[in-house]
């Protein structure tokens, strides 16, 4: 087997593995998140309520950052699989999973920092 094909095979296997492991983490995170959501939306959602729970709360911060990192692994690989299947010859589209990964990491971590600190001012 030529090295190019071989390293691609190893990469594919590792991506599959990473996506499944992150899926296991997300299974837990999403289930917990759904419960938190149903609890939180009762009687409307305000910033004060949200920040009241998350501000200074290390447990929430760690939980949500783990959540963000699991999404970072899981979603772009899923998107890449769909693109590879439906647009096999469009190599240009392969930038999209990277774009998604960047958005998830940057915006996600900013969101976690934001709700943990409750605002660092404008």
């Amino acid at each position: 087997m030529s090295t190019a094909i071989h390293s691609s095979a190893v990469l594919q296997a590792k991506l599959w593995y990473a996506q499944r492991i992150s899926a296991m983490v997300l299974g837990l995170c999403v289930a917990i998140h759904l419960f938190i959501m149903f609890y939180a939306i009762r009687g409307g959602l305000t910033a004060g309520e949200i920040l009241g729970r998350t501000q200074g709360n290390w447990l929430f911060a760690i939980f949500y950052e783990v959540f963000v990192l699991a999404c970072l692994v899981h979603a772009p690989i899923g998107l890449a699989n769909i693109l590879r299947e439906n647009f096999p010859r469009s190599y240009g589209l392969s930038i999209l999973p990277w774009v998604l990964a960047t958005l998830v990491l940057v915006l996600g971590t900013t969101a976690v920092i934001g709700v943990f600190t409750g605002g660092v001012g404008r």
Binding site: A47, L51, L107, A111, G114, G119, V120, R122
Partner: peptide, 12 residues
Amino acid sequence: LSQSLFGADELD
């Protein structure tokens, strides 16, 4: 959610 970085009012 990241708008919370600018304070509760901005998020609201």
